[in-house]
Design a protein around this nucleic acid. Structure first.
Lengths: 160, 160
DNA sequence: ATGCGACAAGAATCGGGTTTTTTGTCGCGA
DNA sequence: TCGCGACAAAAAACCCGATTCTTGTCGCAT
């Protein structure tokens, strides 16, 4: 593959990251350009661009750099690059976590851990208890009757 | 529908929650039995059971009760019960958040906010820049070259 | 038996101050 | 022009004590 790909300036223009950020990220090991000129100037590969652009997106979504650090780190561990068709991945970002959504499920980009609780399972599990004296509803409505009249301000347990 | 469904004892046996918990949850408005006997004894509906069982699962997954509170609260807001086929839902639990996975995507059960970053979009966006002087890889490998030799312990910026 | 109130241990949250991280800006040198 | 080092502001993480929440246990009333 070609040695020269993208200069810092190009990458900066393309990804929206500042030169300062690229430099700092290289310095702290988040992502170094895969090539360098003999003069020590950065040359980022297209693969680098993908990672940088992803990171930039996460940043814009409010994920802190430290979190991104961990994410990238475990992504390298948990994504078998040969197998994973990248186009089918999605990153789901909420305030605190970054999930990797895959066709087969989802897992936490930080820990790689996966906890999925299909509601269907719960229904199945409960249905075996229905003989205990209940009707059999056909239309499930979940959480329909939570905290209606009793206010959450009522909890004065340890007081007089 | 039938008035009598499940007594506290039954619910306790079925869900694995203690009577104490059921009582406290009722008291604090997390979930009250939808029926009561004239004597003031609890009668939980099957719908209640689903909610309780879900909550129990979240508890077991390490989600704190306060978080569950918020989850249930926003779930009631964000799930149009009439439309949502419950069997297609999954709760994705990671350390800090509870996500509701739906066929069309996922959203945070706490805030209802949704940020999905399909990697395919990133690729698409980048491909328009390829003329800038790069090769055209056919096999994407992401995050393959992150933090290899340069240690993260190197960042001594503000020092001498 | 079930509900209810009281007390207490343990867990979780909150608030504020401190430390670390991240980024902008400037200046120098190749 | 690009990289590099230094200083400083802003943001994020961290720590720790205080507060609040959750749950177990006991005793009493219905």
């Amino acid at each position: 593959m070609a040695e020269h790909c993208f200069s810092s300036r190009q990458v900066s223009r393309i990804t929206g990251l500042t030169a300062r950020q690229l430099h700092y990220w290289q310095r702290t090991g988040l992502l170094s350009p895969s090539q360098q000129t003999s003069g020590g100037h950065a040359r980022y590969s297209f693969t680098d661009l993908i990672a940088l652009k992803s990171a930039k997106r996460l940043l814009d979504a409010g994920v802190s750099l430290q979190r991104i650090r961990k994410c990238l780190h475990s992504l390298t561990r948990f994504l078998p690059t040969a197998q994973m068709p990248l186009r089918e991945l999605s990153l789901v970002v909420t305030g605190d976590v970054v999930l990797v959504l895959h066709s087969t499920g989802a897992f936490d980009a930080l820990s790689g851990q996966e906890w999925v609780l299909p509601v269907a399972d719960i229904l199945e599990e409960l249905e075996s208890w229905q003989g205990d004296g209940a009707y059999r509803p056909t239309q499930w409505e979940l959480f329909d009757d939570v905290g209606e009249d009793s206010e959450v301000g009522t909890q004065r347990l340890n007081q007089g």
